[in-house]
Amino acid sequence: MKINLPCTDANTICDKAQYEEASFWEKIKLHLHLFLCRACRKYTSQNQKLTEILNKAQVKTISQAEKLKLKERLQSELNK
């Protein structure tokens, strides 16, 4: 019995939860599913760990607009 929640859906809810975008009801469904499904428990714990790692790393990015500027400068040099 998997309480009508396929594993793919459970994983999606778990992904959403990493970005705090899972609704209250979704979270309840997820936890019920986790209670019964070992594979999803494993995925969830791995996923939570990944979130911790990502927070710790504090990767910074260059914005798309700034990337465009870099590209333009490189491109103008390429065309010379």
Partner: peptide, 26 residues
């Protein structure tokens, strides 16, 4: 042509911890 998309974030993260200034790093 692909450098900016492929490597700019990587290079930025490498640079920012060393110079600690967003504009300068760019």
């Amino acid at each position: 042509e692909l450098w900016v998309d492929r490597y700019s974030d990587y290079l930025y993260n490498y640079t920012i911890v060393r110079v600690n200034d967003h504009d300068l790093a760019q």
